[in-house]
């Protein structure tokens, strides 16, 4: 994959639509074959307050889609709906329809365990378990019984760590606690932990907000690499980041999905005034 096309200098500046279109189109056309996740008029309520208002959105296979918007706009809430992490919040209620490969994920017969094995999630703050690095990665495969033998498990651990670009850094201390790693390493460990289950979709909730710029760059590079084989949906508060890594970008505002388009279009030729105000820094 050609990562150089996503250099930050290109993204938010006032380039003409025609120039940027070519770039974005190429990636979208590659990704656009198949709808992976589909949201149809989704509403989310916390108690009596409505956090998400009737959102319709298609997410395509193997694309990187970024959610941006001011804090409290509902982008994280919506992200967590996609693998039903909101189930853990008692007062949260989801209405509407979200389908994965055409099947409703909120259907009563749908098993949330299976869903989350298909749609993994990486959180804002790195949250490695207080166990060894090896056990952190092995946890998911063990949980789901994915490895019959120790060798198989070793293999999964190694390949996942390699995928997360962490193998070289930790291969000599797999039995050391995961909490002893640096923040950026911890976050990549969490990504490797998610990858170890081989999900179809990886959700990332502001994965770099707790990291320094160097660690952020590494994680962004990793996202780029992962997008070859995974569908990635990420929330970010950082517009440059969206511009650097995302194929498409969705702008949320006060519970509404204002617009979604190729990243270049969003940053150079937004259709909605609110999007325009946000990306030019009037608010947020």
């Amino acid at each position: 994959m050609d990562t150089s096309t996503h250099s930050p200098s290109q993204a938010p500046s006032a380039a003409t639509p025609s120039v940027s279109l070519g770039n974005g189109e190429s990636r979208i056309s590659r990704a656009k074959d198949k709808v992976k996740l589909k949201a149809e008029s989704v509403d989310v309520f916390y108690g009596d307050t409505q956090a998400i208002k009737s959102i319709d959105l298609d997410i395509f296979e193997n694309e990187v889609l970024a959610f941006i918007g001011p804090s409290g706009c509902g982008k994280s809430t919506f992200l967590r709906c996609l693998n039903r992490m909101n189930d853990t919040i008692d007062i949260c209620r989801v209405e509407g329809r979200i389908t994965l490969d055409g099947k409703d994920i909120y259907a009563p017969e749908r098993d949330v365990v299976l869903l989350r094995a298909q749609v993994g999630i990486v959180f804002q703050k790195p949250n490695p378990f207080p166990k060894s690095i090896y056990e952190n990665i092995a946890y998911g495969p063990r949980l789901h019984g994915l490895a019959k033998r120790k060798a198989e498990l070793d293999d999964i651990v190694e390949s996942s760590l390699r995928r997360a670009g962490l193998w070289e850094e930790v291969k000599d201390r797999l039995d050391k606690p995961g909490t002893g790693l640096s923040g950026g390493q911890q976050q990549r460990l969490c990504i490797a932990r998610t990858v170890a289950v081989s999900p179809d979709v990886i959700l990332m909730d502001e994965p770099c907000s707790a990291l320094d710029p160097i660690a952020t760059a590494k994680v962004e590079q990793l996202i780029d690499e992962l997008s070859e084989s995974y569908t990635i949906v990420m929330v970010t508060h950082n517009m440059q980041q969206a511009a650097r890594v995302a194929d498409r970008t969705a702008f949320f505002h006060m519970g509404d999905l204002v617009e979604v388009d190729s990243t270049d279009n969003i940053f150079t030729n937004p259709q909605d005034q609110r999007t325009h105000d946000y990306i030019t820094g009037r608010f947020g």
Partner: peptide, 25 residues
Amino acid sequence: KSLRDGALGLGATKSETIRQVVLPA
């Protein structure tokens, strides 16, 4: 809560989360 979310997000059931992540922690 982040530890619980980590396990749940991998597809652990509630009891698996409690026994394998929360209690050890």
